[in-house]
Nucleic acid binder design. Structure first.
Length: 880
RNA sequence: GCGGGCGUGGCGGAACUGGUAGACGCGCGGGACUCAAAAUCCCGUUCCCGCAAGGGAGUGAGAGUUCGAUUCUCUCCGCCCGCACCA
């Protein structure tokens, strides 16, 4: 029963009369913009206009564009077109984040070369973006997988290396033994490789790192003044960087115990040096060198450490993991208390990666330490007294006390508040040479080595005699070889018969190329700067161009990049500045994070997911499967995903309704930073509006001379039009695109009202003006329709809306002829009156008291107070 | 647990610096046009009482400040997001 015939194109209104034919109009105007190169700008413009750089996060070429792209690029296009009309020289480029794992997966699964797969996807998606009618400067297009791009990235890498911003160090990685590759944290699912399913091993490898931690303080401090970034993104970055103030101090081991051979002290990091007198143990991470030293002589310790390691790394396991410890038998001396010693435990809750991998345990004032102490019967000594508590009776139960208070049981710290006690403790430690105050960071250096083919080759050579040797500038780019195979696991670059074998540039003996490629986040950490001088061949960046256009004035993309991409880009920009490539340090002056595009999901009775086009929504509200007529279970509204089959293909929407409809609906539905729901009814409503605008324009006659006087309907319409200019402008300035849409609906409604009013001198002129404003104000959102309407109004005129300045409202038309004033009695609305604007308080109050409803309600009451807010309200306060 | 955000009609949402709550759209109900349908247009649409005029309630709940609170303050409830044994 397969229906093989093509589905009939059902477009509302297609059957009837002259209609706006978007299928003809949209390509026509796209060609017109392209022919006139409306959206192209120079690397270093000489037009004297202020610059404005609009950028949306460039797409990964996965195959086709999705609704998230449509939303992202529509938002950016509204800004770009609006700012251009406001007189800015706008740069609005587009490119491709083209390196990445999906291309290699396609190669493995389907035998297609990653380059071929990527370029085919780019071609498809570029055509789709062009059909959206975006005001992009395509002359700046590049793909990060092009050697013309990544050669410059290699140059930047070498410059960073020379500047000490790149290091090679050993690090623990997630290693998939079957695929023979490193996995990112998010590619490890329940401790297994996401593709191979093999248990992931922790392995120490030599990796390349960008020294992002060198900029930790700067990256954090500047966040405070980035007022055009969303607050929550700044908070997320601040948390990620994770500054904490504390102290490093060491504890001397009690000598004589053979287990800790060769080690005489343990260093800890703490944020609570004021609680040192509450110490009852010291704990080290299972990976700590002292733990290893103990394990070497103590099989039980070795067993405990092994157990910790096998506990798994998934977050769920860690979260529920009970605290476990092993008493090493070692003891340490207290820094202040003569003769006091404490046990050294290996504890599973101590992290080797943070601080020094060792802590001192103060159970009275740290919940983890308390849990641990209760389990193993260690002492709990409170040393901070909460305000108002009685030192004789205050004790710790199941909850550690972490609030403010004064130190007690603490010798020289007694009586000091927490902050003063911290300072005093640090001073005392420093005086004894046992420790000092330090700032600690959660942020780690950025490991960029990936054992993959489809990425930017890291331009270094490993030589047995010379060590790591940078590839000489003259030998760049290090190109990826084309002839690679994906028939076995691991990195094809490593398997390649010849590619990695080169002579050392320094000693000319046989050596090996680095076969790791860069994390793809590197590619996107500087593309925004490259757009400014996309065709420069000799150097990564042309300073004059970059310094002109950067920073990006408005960057737009998904919240999912709140930390990694944006933080890496901020780091890279600083590193590029410090290596002399550019003159600025923050890449994105303004950031806007858009919400997701969601859709209902549908399942058949047997639980199989159904595509939206497989279901039929009946007028009675029931939803059935088209082929069977069986009822369908309507699921939650959630993010579009292939597995739930609740995706809407933008290509089909544009083919059916046109790009303007898609853009208009996506803007109108809700505020752009929230998740939206794509609905068929909403899209159809947007389409109806495009037709309505066109019909309004069709009703306008030939140009007439501007009359000297307007009748009442003409004046009303003109006020509506000019109020719309002001309101839409304000809405666009504040990213309230849904409000801008609402104001344009109101203008359309006002035009309809005027059409229905009787003939009146000057009304034709006012209608023409209003329709023109409707077109020009909607142009950032529906650019094709705006051009079509303007062409209809001005036959033969050669001007494009895209080249027109933004309309300015006439000031006197923004003042209402009369204002409605609400009248309240004791704050309750009792009536309204119409008054001339800025009428005197006395006249307004007199009119208010005379209003029949108000007069009746005031009868027999004594007015105690009359509140008058000009042009808004009158409120009578009564007594009795 | 820590940090942040959000609760407004059937739905998405609007509301300037505290001043007529529900703009605008979707949906729904009624009507016009039509042989009929589509399309289009018109009217209505927060809830309750009422034929109506009108009255009452109402922005998650409760309190407070104020002539007046969706807006400011406090307490509570619910939902969402980020981080998390970070010492």
């Amino acid at each position: 029963m397969n229906d093989t015939s093509a589905p009939v194109e059902q477009v509302p209104g297609a059957a009837d009369g002259p209609r706006y034919d978007f299928r003809a109009a949209e390509p026509k105007w796209q060609a017109a913009w392209s022919e006139r190169a409306c959206f192209q700008v120079a690397d270093v413009p000489t037009d004297g206009k202020p610059k404005y750089y609009v950028l949306e996060m460039f797409p990964y070429p996965s195959g086709k564009i999705h609704m998230g792209h449509v939303r992202n690029y529509t938002l950016g296009d509204v800004v770009a077109r609006y700012k251009r009309a406001r007189g800015f020289s706008v740069m609005h480029p587009m490119g491709w984040d083209a390196f990445g794992l999906p291309a290699e997966n396609a190669a493995r699964e389907r035998g297609i070369h990653p380059a071929e797969w990527t370029h085919a996807n780019i071609a498809t998606m570029k055509a789709e973006l062009q059909r959206m009618g975006l005001s992009l400067d395509w002359a700046r297009e590049f793909a990060t997988c092009d050697p013309e791009y990544y050669q410059h990235q290699q140059k930047l890498f070498l410059d960073f290396l020379a500047a000490g911003l790149v290091e090679r160090k050993e690090s623990w990685v997630n290693w998939d033994p079957v695929d023979g590759t490193v996995l990112a944290n998010e590619q490890v699912i329940d401790g297994k490789g996401w593709r191979s399913g093999a248990p992931v091993e922790k392995k120490q490898l030599s990796q390349w790192f960008f020294s992002i931690t060198k900029y930790a303080a700067e990256l954090l401090d500047v966040l405070g003044s980035m007022d055009r970034w969303p607050e929550r993104v700044r908070l997320m970055q601040a948390n990620w960087i994770g500054r904490s103030e504390g102290a490093r101090l060491h504890f001397d081991l009690v000598p004589g115990k053979s287990k800790g051979a060769g080690i005489d002290k343990i260093e800890v990091y703490t944020t609570r040096p004021d609680t040192l007198y509450g110490m009852s143990f010291l704990a080290i991470a299972p990976e700590h060198p002292v733990a290893a030293a103990v394990a070497a002589r103590d099989p039980a310790a070795a067993k405990f450490i092994a157990e910790c390691r096998s506990m798994g790394t998934s977050e769920a396991v860690i979260e529920t993991a009970e605290k476990h410890g092993y008493d090493t038998g070692l003891r340490v001396k207290h820094p202040f208390i003569e003769g006091a010693t404490y046990p050294v435990w290996i504890a599973n809750f101590v992290l080797m990666e943070y601080g020094t991998g060792a802590i001192f345990g103060c159970p009275g004032h740290d919940q983890r330490d308390l849990d641990f102490s209760r389990k193993y019967g260690l002492d709990v000594i409170p040393v901070v007294l909460p305000p108002g508590a009685d030192p004789a009776t205050f004790s710790i139960g199941k909850e550690a006390y972490v609030g403010p208070g004064t130190a007690y049981h603490s010798d020289f710290l007694n009586g000091l508040d927490v902050d003063a006690a911290k300072r005093a403790a640090i001073d005392a430690l420093a005086a004894k040479g046992m420790g000092q105050g330090v700032t600690n960071w959660r942020l780690r250096d950025w490991g960029v080595s990936r054992q993959r083919y489809w990425g930017c080759p890291i331009p270094v050579i490993h030589c047995d005699s010379c060590g790591v040797v940078p590839v000489p500038a003259g030998q760049l780019p290090v190109r990826l070889p084309d002839d690679v195979t994906f028939d076995r696991p691991g990195n094809p670059l490593d398997h390649h018969p010849t590619w990695k074998h080169v002579d050392c540039p320094r000693c000319h003996e046989p050596a090996r190329r680095e076969t790791d490629t860069c994390d793809t986040f590197v590619d996107s950490a500087w593309y925004f700067a490259r757009f400014c001088c996309a065709s420069a061949t000799d150097e990564p960046l042309v300073r004059a161009a970059v310094d002109h256009w950067m920073p990006v004035d408005q960057y737009i993309g998904g919240i999912e990049h709140a930390i990694l991409h944006l933080l890496y880009s901020r780091f890279f920009t600083r590193a590029m500045k410090d290596t002399g490539h550019i003159g600025i340090d923050e890449p994105f002056a303004g950031l806007f994070t858009q919400g997701m595009v969601n859709h209902e999901s549908y399942r058949a009775a047997d639980g199989v997911w159904l595509y939206p086009e497989e279901v039929d929504k009946r007028p009675d509200g029931t939803v059935v499967q088209k082929t069977t007529g069986e009822p369908v279970i309507v699921g939650r509204i959630e993010a579009m995903s292939k597995s739930r089959r609740n995706t809407i293909d933008p290509g089909e929407i544009i083919a059916r309704y046109g790009a303007d409809t898609a853009r208009w609906f996506i803007l109108s539905d809700n505020p752009p930073d929230r998740d939206m729901e794509w609905t068929e009814a909403g899209a159809a409503g947007a389409f109806r509006f495009t037709q309505r605008v066109f019909r309004l324009a069709e009703g306008i006659g030939a140009t007439v001379a501007r009359p000297a006087e307007f009748g009442p309907n003409g004046r009303t319409l003109r006020r509506a039009a000019h109020k719309a200019i002001a309101a839409v402008t304000e809405a666009l300035e504040s990213f309230a695109f849904n409000v801008a849409v609402a104001r344009l609906y109101e203008l359309a409604n006002a035009i309809t009202d005027a059409e229905r009013s009787g003939p009146e001198p000057g009304l034709d002129w006012a209608r023409r003006e209003a329709v023109e404003m409707l077109a020009r104000l909607s142009a950032p959102m529906m650019p094709h329709l705006a051009e079509e309407v303007m062409a209809l109004l001005n036959p033969g005129a050669a001007v494009l809306v895209a080249d027109l300045p933004w309309p300015e409202p006439e000031a006197d038309l923004l003042i209402a002829e009369s204002v409605t004033i609400a009248i309240q009695i004791m704050g309750k609305l009792r009536g309204t009156i119409a008054m001339p604007p800025d009428a005197t308080a006395a006249s307004v109050i007199a009119a208010a008291e005379a209003e029949p409803h108000v007069a009746r309600a005031l009868e027999g009451k004594r007015i105690v107070k009359r509140v008058h807010v000009p042009n808004r309200i009158v409120n009578f306060v009564t007594a009795g």
